[in-house]
Every structure is written in C-alpha cells, then in structure tokens.
Nucleic acid binder design. Structure first.
Length: 420
RNA sequence: CGGGGCGUAGCGCAGCCUGGUAGCGCGCUUCGUUCGGGACGAAGAGGUCGGAGGUUCGAAUCCUCUCGCCCCGACCA
C-alpha cells in the first residue's frame, strides 16, 4: 500500500480549544479535517472507516429485505408545506434557487419518500415494502459541536417502511430493532449501546433510541433491569415509568442507574401521518382505500464513527475494531535502507494480502519511535514489526493494539485471533 | 440565539498590557551522524499577524465594526 496515497500525516498537536476527544484523535490521526464548524472532510484513512460502517449498515438493511435508493438532498419548499414542517423544523437549511425559488437541504426525507412511494404502492399486494438510503444530510444547528457527533452536514442512513396493518409494522419494527443491535455489535459498540425508550409522538407510545453509554455523552438515560433504558425526557411521566418498570412500586424510578450517553440511532413508528398528508393510499382486499402505516429508522454513520473514536481509544490513540478498521494490519518496516527488511516486508504483505487482509505498510525513512507512535495513534488492530533482528531470526513481531500483547512468530505464521 | 475565550508560517503557540516593521516548537528541504518506542548536529525554505475602517511619523500591538473557531447555556425528527 502506498502510504502517500492515503494523505497519511499525523500530528502531535491539536488546537487546545478543541476538547472533544473524538475530534482530537481523528484530527491527530489524519482521518478527518474540519472545514468549518460542523463540516468535516474525511481523508482517505477516515473515509475507509466511514465506508465500512456504512456497508455494515447496508448489509443489515439488505438482510431486512429493504432496497437501497438515493433521494435528492436538494428539495423544493412545496413538499415541506404539505406537512407544515417548512417553518416547524428550526434546523432546516433554507436557500434560494434560480428564480428566487425556496429550497431546503434535507434533514430527513419523509417528504420525499412518501410521494415517491405513491408511484409504486397501489394495492395491498405492494405491501409491505421498505427502502433506505445512505446520504449526506443537513441540519442548520445553532451550535455544531463535539467533532463528528453534532454536525451541520453529516452522513445518515434513513429507512422508511410501509405496511398494510399496524401489526405488520410492529413485527417489522421488532426485526429492525434486532438489525440495529447487530449493527452496534459489529461496529464495536454493542456492549455499551442500550435500546432506549423515548417519546413516541402521535402514533405510538414510544420511539426507540440506541444510546451508547459514555461520560462524554449529552443525553441522559436511566438503565432498566432488563438491559434496556429510558430516556430522561420521559422518566418524569408516571405512565411511562409504571409501564416500563416491571412490578412498579412507588419510588422505584429513584433506584434506576443514571448514565450519560450518545444517541447513535433512532427508530420511529410514523403511523399514517405522512401517508395521509401526501394522500398515499392502497386498495385493500375488500376494495376499500386505506393509508399505509409507516415506520422510519435512522442511524448516522458519521456519528457512529465519532462515537467509536470517543469510546474505543486510549492514551496512545484510536483502537478500531477489526470490522471497521481502515486496514487490518499495519506493517512497520523499521529499516527501509536494509534490503533484508524490505524483502521481508514485501513478503509479509503478500502473504497477508493473499489471505484477504488489508495491509498498510509504513515505509517511511524515520525513527522507530515515530512509526510505533503513529501506528498506535491510527489504531489498526494488528501491528507487524519487521526489523534487522527479526529478519535475522526469520521472525516477525506482532502486536495487538487493543491488548498491547506482543509476540514474535515465524514469518508467515499469523497470531492467534487475527482473522477476518 | 445569550454568555465567555480565542484568531500571528502547513500544525501548535509566544509577542499585544507599555506601538518602532515578527519569534519559538513541530512539520518541511539539504548534508552528515544515528537507527527496536515520538534521535542529534549544521545549513535552509516558509507569514498581506482573520478582514475592513480609524488613531499615529509609524499598528500584530491602541479604537470601532465585521467574519470565523472553541467552550458553557438554550435548542436538538
């Protein structure tokens, strides 16, 4: 792998005013670069992580039977007037198009998907159906903050489902919940991420958020005995408490453990709010005309990436889980002036690549400390060091980034635990 | 949107109070010595001091306005 192809340049210094851990680490590692508050460039290394997260999400959505599409971020005012949300969503980015036309940059896509769905949904035979997109979304936040966690421009996967009956929506919603839990598991946040009950809106009692527990979080949740959680916003509602705490007795809510968290996903039952607004209908078996019930399911890959950086890291830098790491293995060639080291590096690279591993070779002519420190900072799960001593012994020194455990193995033999 | 802090070289900062034409660290270039955890020496390159206006013989420095970044709060399908 050509190092220069990846804009790979780390730095020891980051502005002292930047206190957000995820931003500090990702900037230092050369993975993202801030253009303005809430808008970041993803450098090659960072984009590889983002893309992997998005592909995991795609994989799970596809398994649900949803098809991927792509809708415009640029949207006319008229569709927002239909639902009355042009003036209601205060983070809506508004701009003027040619001819002084009012336009919006999409913060969410119910107003686009619903009329679009009307072109394909006519009969109960067309239901259920679900589609999703992975796209750049815009929200004109009064205060963008916390690195990748709250941007004005960010990546979002939004899925919309359409059903003939509430029961069918409920069943799909459950499957979607499981898919979301698999997503967090795969990106490495599974143990820290709780399904959380939040306020529901007009058509359901609750919506569900997925909250990753961390001190740097902005949300507050209360853990339930069964492993779920309740968002603080509804903990004060008597009905909700009695509802969610089994065998509730007066005062039980005070015993719940309180924790800070980052919202990494949110799923909603929309009911017929949008299908009614856009007059999306289907003809049922008995010939009656009905509005499909809808659900929407959101998760932000860029925020997930920021959360992983925030949560899975140590003093030395980032620690990417195997499935979203920009590369699986980093080979540190300690002596690029030594033919033996270069040959061994190329050989190990070939062996690993042939087995499907993605490999980054540090072939800079610089000190060992530089290379080790950068490799730790970038956070590839496995490091393989090749130096004169190892070459003489026919060995490679392996290091597991997460555990810090090191071991020397014969060239070609891979450490326990290194697998795709 | 309210409050506070800060904009000086690619990055991180000092200088500003007490005006006199810009400096340090990292990074970068060249040479040499090094070479298994952020090496050392020598020589270099690189800046309209966020922007506009004002005061002054003279402004990075003082005044006014403006833009931006970060933090706290409010807000957050």
């Amino acid at each position: 792998m050509q190092r220069t192809a990846y804009f790979l340049k780390t730095t020891k210094d980051v502005a002292k005013t930047e206190v957000s851990r995820n931003a500090q680490l990702l900037i230092r590692a050369g993975m993202v670069n801030q253009l303005m508050a809430g808008a970041y460039s993803y450098l090659p290394l960072g984009l590889r992580v983002l893309t992997k997260i998005e592909n995991i999400i795609r994989d799970e959505m596809n398994r649900l039977g949803a098809g991927e599409l792509l809708m415009p971020a640029l949207q006319p005012r008229e569709i927002w007037d239909v639902t009355g949300r042009w003036d209601k969503i205060d983070v809506l980015f508004k701009l003027k198009g040619a001819g002084d036309r009012d336009l919006a940059l999409g913060p969410t896509h119910e107003e686009v998907i619903t009329p679009l769905a009307a072109t394909v949904i006519n009969s109960y035979r067309d239901l259920p159906t679900a589609v999703y997109q992975v796209q750049t979304k815009f929200r004109n936040e009064a205060r963008a903050k916390s690195g990748l966690l709250r941007g004005r421009e960010f990546r979002m996967k939004d899925m919309y489902s359409f059903h003939a009956t509430q029961e069918d929506l409920d069943a799909f919603y459950e499957k979607a919940t499981e898919a979301y839990q698999r997503i967090y598991q795969r990106v490495g946040l599974g143990d820290l991420t709780l399904r959380t009950f939040a306020s529901g809106g007009a058509f359901s009692k609750y919506s569900h958020e997925f909250q990753t527990l961390t001190e740097s979080g902005e949300d507050i949740v209360y853990k339930l005995p069964n492993g779920d959680a309740i968002n603080e916003e509804i903990i004060t509602e008597r009905e909700a408490i009695a509802d969610l705490i089994p065998n509730y007795k007066e005062g039980d809510e005070a015993k719940l453990q309180k924790a800070k968290s980052i919202e990494v996903g949110n799923i909603f039952k929309l009911g017929t709010r949008f299908s009614e607004a856009f007059n999306l209908t289907y003809t049922d078996k008995d010939g009656s005309v009905k509005h499909p019930v809808m659900g929407c399911y959101g998760v932000g890959p860029s925020r997930v990436m920021g959360t992983v950086a925030e949560v899975l890291s140590d003093e030395a830098g980032l620690i990417w889980p195997m499935e979203i790491a920009p590369f699986h293995v980093g080979i540190v060639n300690l002596r690029v002036s030594d033919d033996g080291c270069n040959i061994a590096t190329a050989k190990l690279n070939d062996i690993l690549t042939a087995q499907g591993f993605e490999v980054l070779v540090d072939d800079r002519d610089t000190g060992a400390g530089d290379k080790f420190a950068d490799m730790d900072l970038i956070g590839l799960p496995w490091q393989a060091t090749i130096g004169p001593k190892g070459v003489a012994a026919g060995e490679v020194e392996w290091k597991n980034r997460k555990t810090g455990q090191k071991q020397s193995l014969p060239m070609g033999k891979l450490p326990e635990g290194l697998s795709l």
